[in-house]
Design a protein around this nucleic acid. Structure first.
Length: 481
RNA sequence: GGCCCCUUGGUCAAGAGGUCAAGACAUCACCCUUUCACGGUGAAAUCGUGGGUUCGAUUCCCGCAGGGGUCACCA
């Protein structure tokens, strides 16, 4: 049975790269009828962030990555939070101490620092030479110590990675890393191995930053007599050619994109395609399609650059297909923020906006005309907007038909778009103008904006007759003066 | 710096010795259209570099360059 895991450290937000790692682990497990597990790696007590675990849990839920075992849902291999598993690690550390695969180290941070200053790139194994008696005495004296992994000083290790192939690393390039810190907590290097084994993880899917240290973990698996998992290392998602997506630059949080008005699945769909492809040309894929198509041989060896523009495009596809009511409620927070004083039919506004926004926050710009017109200025907008080179219109033309426009609006059956347009067409005919000329002038007079989410008739319906007429009258006053 | 990894248009990418080197986003043009958007058609744009191997290299090998990763009592 395939078992994969997502093992984030709780930093207070879910990184887009982390989400993609989680997604691949999830898809791989689901594709093979296996289990997807969430484990929290919080062994660094200095980095604790309050509420951070909930942030991750909620984000995974929104993204649709439902885990089978983990905090909150339980499972047979709990607890799933490493800080609650302290004793477990200690037990195996002792076993390693006995077999000689690990040793106690009393070197102070100062000595370690001095070593590095004098050019050393790794720990010199000094404490490995300590006698059993001396170790015992110093522990008894209460001297702080750590437990280090005893890595062979010669030889090399080769292992297979599913995306990078065979990776060989010389032992001399590996340090005797710390397994148990002086506070008794394990380091990632240790906890990760113990937990992956105890939790039955069969496929270890994680970032490339662990590619080089994997031989160390393999040594641990071997020393403990455990079977190594299959490794799948993933290249990072980049902001540009030389920088990773980072929290610091504000372009890395899943929640940030949600707040910008991206739909959760659009984000998931997009990042699925960043570093993986299904070998056919489909790009808009549901979770079940992703599950069905996912395969590690579609994984990319090189890193890829995050392109928000393309994600916007994908998002627009999803926005167009959601139900009108769903769009409306998703748009609500943006109306509250940007259209609070607009006094228009918001449901109708949603109907007009849904096919025209790529992400929900586009609502701000798309509704600019609702805010700009009524700002109390003498001229409600720049009348040069009446000028249209294709239709050959200008303010003078506007002036010549503004009375009729007002009249049509006053008599309009506002909800009946066709009748309003018919009246406008009749006006064009009467004045020997082209349809477009009248319609352009009418829409501009009504909205004062070069681009609006709909034509003149739609705008009248949106504003309501009273407001539409008031606007036209205001324009007439200025046109006449 | 040592070690490990990566390198196809602006971006995501297919391609695995012989292709006019797919497709998508973005860009531009045209069409549709009362604006914007949608949609349609089309254009421009790519194999980092130098050597090999081969009848033939984007594809295989070596070097170089560029980029990334890693060398913590962080994960």
């Amino acid at each position: 049975m395939v078992r994969t895991r997502f093992a984030p450290s709780p930093t207070g937000y879910l990184h887009i790269g982390g989400l993609r790692t989680a997604l691949y682990a999830y898809l791989f497990a689901k594709k093979h009828g296996g289990k997807f597990i969430l484990r929290i790696e919080d062994t660094d007590q200095n980095r604790e962030v309050a509420g951070a675990v909930d942030v991750i849990i909620q984000a995974l839920d929104k993204a649709g990555l439902h885990y089978d075992e983990g905090p909150g849902v339980g499972g047979d291999c709990g607890p799933y939070i490493q800080s609650q598993r302290k004793d477990i690690y200690l037990k195996y550390a002792r076993q390693l101490l006995e077999s000689g695969d690990a040793y106690c180290c009393f070197c102070t941070k100062e000595r370690l620092e001095d070593m590095h200053k004098s050019g050393a790139t790794k720990y010199d194994k000094r404490c490995l030479a300590l006698s059993a008696q001396e170790v015992q005495d110093r522990i008894a004296r209460g001297e702080p110590y750590v437990i280090r992994q005893n890595i062979p000083s010669v030889g090399s290790s080769t292992y297979h990675d599913e995306v990078f192939g065979d990776i060989t690393v010389d032992y001399k390039d590996l340090e005797d890393n710390i397994l148990i810190k002086s506070d008794g907590m394990p380091t990632y290097n240790f906890a990760n191995v113990i937990d992956d084994h105890l939790m039955g993880i069969t496929h270890c899917i994680r970032g490339v930053e662990y590619l080089m240290s994997t031989p160390k973990y393999n040594l641990l698996y071997d020393a403990l007599g455990w079977e190594r998992p299959v490794y799948v290392h993933l290249q990072p998602i980049m902001r540009d050619a030389t920088h990773k997506l980072s929290k610091r630059d504000g372009d890395a949080g899943f929640e940030d994109f949600l707040n910008k008005g991206f739909l959760p699945h659009a984000i998931v769909n997009y990042i699925a395609l960043l570093g993986w492809n299904p070998k056919d040309n489909r790009e808009k894929l549901s979770m079940s399609e992703l599950t069905e198509l996912f395969s590690i041989d579609g994984l990319q060896k090189s890193s890829s650059i995050f392109d928000e523009t393309k994600m916007r495009w994908l998002n627009s596809l999803y926005i167009k297909e959601i139900a009108a009511a769903e769009f409306h409620s998703a748009a609500m927070p943006f109306y509250e923020k940007y259209c609070a004083d607009a006094n228009v039919d918001l449901e109708y506004l949603s109907e007009l906006l849904q096919p025209r926004v790529e992400i929900l926050s586009d609502i701000k710009d798309k509704t600019e005309f609702l805010r700009a017109f009524d700002d109390g200025a003498q001229t409600p907008f720049d009348f040069s907007l009446f000028e249209n080179k294709k239709w050959k219109t200008d303010a003078a033309l506007a002036k010549s038909i503004i009375d009729e426009c007002i009249e049509i609006t006053e008599n309009a059956e506002v909800d009946d778009l066709e009748s309003v347009n018919a009246a406008l067409n009749a006006l064009a005919e009467k004045k020997s103008l082209k349809k477009g000329q009248v319609l352009w002038v009418y829409r501009i007079a009504l909205t004062g904006a070069a681009a609006t989410p709909g034509g003149g008739a739609e705008m009248v319906k949106l504003f309501g007759k009273e407001k539409a007429v008031a606007r036209l009258r205001k324009v007439k006053t200025i046109l006449d003066s």
